[in-house]
Amino acid sequence: MTMKIRSELITDLKGFIEIRPKWENLHRESESRSISTSWAWMWTWWEVFGDEGELIIISIYDDDELIGVAPLWRRRVKRFGLISTFQIKLLATGEKGKDEICSDYLNLILRRGREEEAIKGMFDLLQDERWDEIVIEALEAGSGTVELLKRMASDRRLKMEELGRMSGFYVELPESWEDYLPRLSQSFRKKIKRNRRELTEALFRAVKTHSELETTFGRLIELHQERMRSLGKPGAFSSERFTEFHRLISHRMLDEGKLYMRSLELNGETIAINYGFKEGDVLYLYQSGIRSLRTNRISPGIALESFCIEEAIRAGLRRYDLMRGDEGYKFHWRPVKHEMVNLKIRRGR
């Protein structure tokens, strides 16, 4: 039986909405499944940042079966203030520095076993499109997509280069909290025990309603910004667009059962918040807000993180992802290091 691979271009919001059910079904089965490649994440990003370019989402089909989605957008950029070029990027990338939402684990959404055909379909359609370069950011370095892009770009005499790498960290979760603790240093285990003991009266709360989310999200901003200002930094929520994106996506993920927001409350005051998302068997810790207490003996952040990791283990999750960045606190939890890569594909001159 001859396969009939075809590629279609989506350039408007109507098409973006209509592909949602098929995108979500494909996403659940794809090796590139992550919170950042979900339809809701990409849609919300475009809702906030889409005024800076045009949609060019490519859907690849085998007859009526969706085997791939390339979630792309295009914009004009100037080089050296003079030369204007057409650049294609993945959705959820390309914000101005202060607005950057730092989407990790980006990728093309590809059906398992059909990756090569889907990527070929993407390149076939792009052959007749207007572009000078394609920039793909935060792609898992170990993903098979990297080698497929490299090979297919070479076959088409396109130039592909690596722009750089970034490190991320995640905790591989065992079957029980008791199995996890021995991985940690003795001194850090003592810190966890002491903080839990000192904060025995603190309440560990989960956000379950939209009204709770509004209140907790506002407190998250306060705690995060206070901490960043004390370090002489502007803080992520100083950006209106960053804040708008997260207000929207947090409510949508709550509706989908994917929001993960936990807090510690002591004497009626919220002193620590973790904000993230669940996708499949992975919990992504995206942002936190911690109040500095007047004693060095107590760290609400350590206590909250330990409760969250223990909860994730009990829920049967496979990974507790600390996302990109090499902040010192992450290493106490004995994470696994991984790399994400940024790539550029250029048409020959």
Rank of each mutant, 00 (worst) to 15 (best):
Arg205Thr: 14
Ile134Asn: 01
Val146Phe: 14
Leu322Arg: 01
Ala206Thr: 10
Lys159Gln: 09
His338Leu: 14
Ile19Gly: 03
Arg297Gln: 12
Pro71Ala: 08
Met122Cys: 08
Asp99Glu: 14
Lys344His: 10
Leu181Tyr: 12
Ile58His: 02
Phe49Tyr: 15
Phe80Gly: 05
Ile10Asn: 05
Gln87Trp: 05
Ile17Met: 14
Leu108Glu: 01
Glu279Leu: 03
Asp281Ala: 14
Gly113Pro: 04
Glu161Gln: 14
Gly232Trp: 09
Leu266Val: 05
Arg165Ile: 11
Ser38Val: 06
Phe86Met: 11
Arg349Ala: 14
Ser143Glu: 00
Ala312Pro: 10
Tyr284His: 08
Ser239Gly: 02
Arg318Asp: 14
Thr216Gln: 07
Ala315Phe: 07
Gly280Thr: 04
Pro182Gly: 12
Gly50Glu: 09
Phe277Met: 14
Lys278His: 09
Arg229Cys: 02
Leu199Tyr: 06
Leu148Cys: 09
Arg112Leu: 06
Phe86Glu: 10
Val171Asp: 03
Ser32Lys: 04
Glu115Tyr: 07
Glu198Ala: 11
Phe237Trp: 05
Glu129Val: 00
Ala92His: 11
Thr243Glu: 01
Leu203Glu: 15
Ile57Tyr: 01
Lys4Ser: 09
Glu175Asn: 13
Trp131Asn: 05
Leu259Phe: 11
Asn107Gly: 13
Met42Ser: 07
Leu259Ser: 03
Leu126Gly: 01
Leu264Ile: 04
Arg205Asn: 15
Glu175Ala: 04
Asp326Arg: 12
Lys98Phe: 12
Leu125Asp: 10
Glu256Asn: 06
Ile109Gly: 07
Arg324Phe: 12
Glu265Thr: 12
Gly15Phe: 00
Leu259Gln: 04
Ile5Tyr: 01
Arg252Met: 10
Ser167His: 08
Ala40Asn: 13
Glu47Gly: 03
Gly50Met: 13
Arg219Gly: 00
Trp46Arg: 08
Glu198Cys: 11
Met152Gly: 05
Ile83Asp: 07
Ser143Arg: 01
Glu305Asp: 06
Thr85Gln: 14
Asp99Trp: 11
Gly97Val: 03
Ala138Gln: 15
Leu91Phe: 02
Val135Arg: 15
Ala70Cys: 05
Arg156Asp: 11
Gly168Cys: 10
Glu140Ala: 09
Gly301His: 08
Ala153Asn: 08
Tyr61Asp: 04
Ser167Lys: 15
Lys78Pro: 00
Arg165Gly: 08
Pro21Met: 06
Ser30Asp: 04
His338Phe: 15
Val336Ile: 15
Gly232Gln: 10
Arg130Phe: 07
Trp73Gly: 00
Ser230Asn: 13
Ser154Val: 09
Met323Asp: 08
Gly316Thr: 02
Trp39Ala: 04
Asn195Ala: 06
Phe204Ser: 07
Ala70Ser: 03
Tyr284Gln: 00
His246Trp: 14
Lys330Tyr: 09
Thr270Phe: 07
Ala236Met: 05
Trp45Pro: 05
Gln87Lys: 13
